[in-house]
Every structure is written in C-alpha cells, then in structure tokens.
C-alpha cells in the first residue's frame, strides 16, 4: 500500500535522490524551528491583520485646581479602532469625554492630533477624526456579532494602563449580557474572559478571523483591574449607531419628513371649519 507513496527513495533516479533527502531534511528542520500549533498560527495571523487598525488614544484635560488650564495634564489613555482609511476612528465616549486635547498614536509610531466628530453618550460611542496625510490608515474589517457563539475564541487588542499595544486572548463567556453601571444600563454586551483593563476601553475585540466583533467597553471588578470579566459592545450595534454619527443628514431629513407628514395629517383632522360653509349663527 505504501509502495505507491510519492516519497519512495528507492525508486527515485539516482541524481534526484540526494536532492530529495536534502529536501526532506529541510522540511524536518523547518518543522522543528517553526513548530507552532495551528491555533498559534491563527492567533498570530489575526493579530497581524488588525494590529495596524488599533490605535492608542491619549487624552489631556484640565486640572480642576487651575483656573486657566494653561497646561493640560496627560490624564487618560484608551484605545480606538480605525473605521475608515481617511482617518475615522471609533472609540468609547467615556475615553474622550472631558478631554481638552486628544492625541492618537498609530501602531507605526506616528502621533496625530484628533478631534471629536460626534458622540453617542447613551451607546458610549464616539467618532474621532485624524488627518493621516499621504500615508492612509488601515481600516479594520467588520464581522458579524450576531453569529458569535459562547466558547468561541476571541482576542482583545488595546492599550491597557497606557503600556502600549497589547494582545490578550480568551473566549466568549456570554452574549446578550445586560450590565448596570451606576444609573446607566448597557444591554446586549458580549462578555469575555480575555484580560481587559483600564486603557483597553475603545479597543478591538476580534474573532479568530481577525474581524472586529466588539468594542471593549467595561469590566466588572472589585479592584478596578481585570479579573477576567470584561464586556464589549457588539459590532452590530456599532453598525447601527455609527453611520448616523458620521453622517446625520439622512436621519435629520427622515425626521423632518416624518414631522411634516404628521403636521399635514393633524391639519387634515383639525381642519378649521370653512368660512363659506353654512351653519349656525
């Protein structure tokens, strides 16, 4: 049965035999040097795919002690995800709220000033704009968070404690989780056991294909740092909210048309009696 196998050295013409042996040796050598398991290769590929699309965000705000805010102090760090190559970045609203100055550090080392284009406080989304110049950014590819299954492997890429770009791995612990944070209720969150820490906020949660499936947003912890219960807003929610933030006109026109129709309808119902109609008096 195995006689027909392709690598039969005995049947090989003599000049090719040594080459074949060499080839097999080479194969064996590479196998020992790069003996990574398939899951490792997958993780490395996924990370390398998204790494240029995740940015570090540093914010500065005013020291309440000082009245004039002449020198804003470096106060916070967070992460962000590149949505469009021309410089649109999505992050959490709580990363940039109160910030007087926002700096975005790209994974290639460039530091760019950013300004807030729009933010949705209730959904904790904010859209930043940077000017990348000639060298455009790499947009992240969006996945489908409705297809997530509990137990699926996920990776978080972010900037915990401002240390710099960091990859952490875990699984989906639960989907559709509702979390109360103070008076605020957040619904339909993805729960993960990948370590998420302060500074990971606004960063990417990706699946093993390297597609964005969530924006890391909150953690549950008595200590304020990761105990492996982290929450991310699903990317499908982002797909609903963020286009409206970037371009609000369709929504404004839509509401305007609706209001106009309602007004016409009400006018029809409460039409003033016509002056010419015969009636009492």
């Amino acid at each position: 049965m195995f006689k027909s196998a392709a690598l039969n050295i005995q049947n090989c013409p003599r000049p090719y035999r040594s080459a074949l042996v060499f080839f097999i040796l080479c194969l064996g050598f590479t196998a020992t040097v790069f003996a990574l398991t398939s899951i490792e290769n997958n993780t490395i590929a996924a990370y390398e795919k998204v790494a240029p699309s995740v940015v570090n965000i540093t914010t500065m705000d005013c020291d309440p002690e000082f009245f004039w805010c002449a020198t804003p102090a470096e106060s916070g760090s967070g992460s962000g995800v590149v949505l469009r190559a021309d410089g649109l970045i999505v992050t959490n609203n709580h990363v940039i709220s109160n910030a007087k100055k926002i700096t975005v550090a790209l994974s290639d080392g460039r530091r760019l000033d950013a300004h807030v284009l729009a933010s949705a406080v209730a959904d904790d989304f904010a859209v930043l704009k940077v000017d990348p110049g000639e060298k455009t950014l790499r947009a992240i590819s969006l996945g489908n968070s409705d297809k997530l299954r509990i137990g699926e492997r996920v990776l978080a890429v972010g900037n915990p404690f401002g240390l710099g770009q960091t990859l952490t791995a875990g699984i989906v612990s639960m989907t559709n989780r509702t979390v109360k944070d103070g008076g605020k209720i957040m619904r339909d969150l993805i729960q993960t056991d990948a370590p998420i820490n302060p500074g990971n906020s606004g960063g990417a949660l990706i699946n093993s294909e390297g597609e964005l499936i969530g924006i890391c947003t909150a953690i549950l912890s008595p200590t304020g740092s990761s105990i492996r219960i982290g929450f991310a807003i699903p990317v499908n929610r982002m797909k609903e909210v963020v286009p409206g933030l970037i371009n609000p006109w369709p929504r404004i026109i839509g509401w305007g048309v609706a209001a106009l129709l309602l007004a016409l309808f009400l006018k029809r119902i409460y039409r003033r009696p016509e002056a010419t109609s015969p009636g009492a008096l």
Binding site: F161, T168, N197, T223, G224
Partner: peptide, 11 residues
C-alpha cells in the same frame, strides 16, 4: 507584573 492590586490582571 503590572498590577494595581498586586495579583495578576493579565499583564
């Protein structure tokens, strides 16, 4: 480790 608590936070 980097940790505000003294125990592992995944860093």
């Amino acid at each position: 480790i980097f940790s505000p608590t003294g125990a592992s936070v995944g860093i």
